[in-house]
Amino acid sequence: MVDTYYKAMNWNKIEDVVDKATWEKLTSQFWLDTRIPLSNDLDDWRTLSKPEQTVVGHVFGGLTLLDTLQSQDGIQAMLKNVRTQAETAVFNNIQFMESVHAKSYSSIFSTLNSAEEIEEIFEWTDHNEHLQKKAKFINDVYQNGTSLEKKVASVFLESFLFYSGFYTPLYYLGNNKLANVAEIIKLIIRDESVHGTYIGYKFQLGFNDLDSDEQDKMRDWMYDFLYQLYDNEEQYTKSLYEEVGWVDEVMVFLRYNANKALMNLGQSPLFPDGNAEDVNPIVMNGISTGTSNHDFFSQVGNGYLMGKVEAMKDSDYDIGLKDGNSLINKLKK
């Protein structure tokens, strides 16, 4: 018999059932931005003031940069330390969808913005001090951190740092504006919820393998890193929202999501005002608004593709994973 040189992936003999459940969840919610009729938002777009339009453009520019980082460097860094073959397949799916997310923002730009405005957006994105610092903080961990540190950085990115940008479209959706733009964001949020939960689960498996002293060191590093990110995120939020007066409200939303990120990692929440009731109810209403159902035979929304985009709930993050069963149940919903 010839010795095994390369091991074939056997999906009928899975080492970790969470891998299979996550794969099925992610593939069932596959979507593309080309199926959302963004041009239907042009009338709403024209009602926004110039400062508001600038905020929207810069918000999506920042999100484009972070999704580019995640698709080009983040997932690749974590692929070096997978525990199972199926985990590689799940990360490949995540990496592809992060590219879809990044591309989706360009579809929004091409619909709402002029060529000159698009140039300004990317110029701002490439040179905003706090946005670039945020990317550097995360990528330094991807390039130089341990396997567990890389997972922490990824969860903080997807479950926390994205949300300074997500606030804007959710706010407008809660005010019955830019519904199709927000539909793309809600699809992205739904993906990121699964990504953050899954990667947080993989972190917890490794964290539980550490002895108590190593866990304490890991926990100290994690909270120190979160403080570093939070301080920079406060400055980034000011650079985005100071002119329209939303800084304080966005920071509450960020604290809410920072707590969610910690929950994904199996850790205790940090911020006392990081609860759903502390967040602007208009934004929470935007999160809970269901999908639009577009024309079946032309442009179609996520109502046709995957069913309803569900509201985010606190229980989505209460994973408490010992054997993965609670995550599997959540993924089956």
Rank of each mutant, 00 (worst) to 15 (best):
E123A: 13
M97A: 05
T125F: 01
S106E: 10
K103H: 14
Y105W: 09
Y105E: 01
S99H: 15
L131Y: 05
H130T: 05
K103L: 14
I108A: 04
H127P: 02
S107L: 13
L131H: 03
E119M: 07
E123F: 13
Q95A: 15
T111D: 03
D126I: 06
E119P: 01
L112R: 12
S110G: 06
I121A: 02
I108V: 14
S104Q: 00
E116P: 06
N113M: 15
D126N: 12
M97C: 03
I121M: 02
S110M: 09
N113C: 13
S114E: 02
S104C: 01
Y105H: 07
S107W: 11
H101L: 01
Q95E: 12
S107Q: 12
L131P: 01
T125P: 04
T111N: 05
Y105C: 05
E120T: 11
L112G: 09
I108W: 04
S99L: 15
V100C: 07
I108H: 02
E120G: 06
F122L: 12
E120H: 08
S107G: 11
N128I: 07
H130C: 03
L131G: 02
E98V: 05
S104V: 00
S106H: 13
A115S: 08
F122I: 11
H101A: 00
H130V: 02
S106V: 15
V100N: 09
E129F: 09
Y105A: 01
L112H: 13
E123H: 15
K103S: 14
S114Y: 04
E120I: 10
F109C: 07
S99T: 15
S104T: 01
S104H: 00
L131N: 05
S114N: 06
F96Y: 08
F96T: 03
T111V: 08
E123K: 15
N128Y: 07
S104E: 00
I121P: 00
S99I: 15
D126R: 13
S114K: 07
E119S: 11
E117L: 10
D126G: 10
L131W: 03
N113E: 09
I121E: 00
N128T: 09
I121C: 02
A115Q: 09
L131A: 04
Y105L: 07
E120Q: 10
L131V: 06
S107I: 08
K103V: 14
E123M: 12
H127S: 10
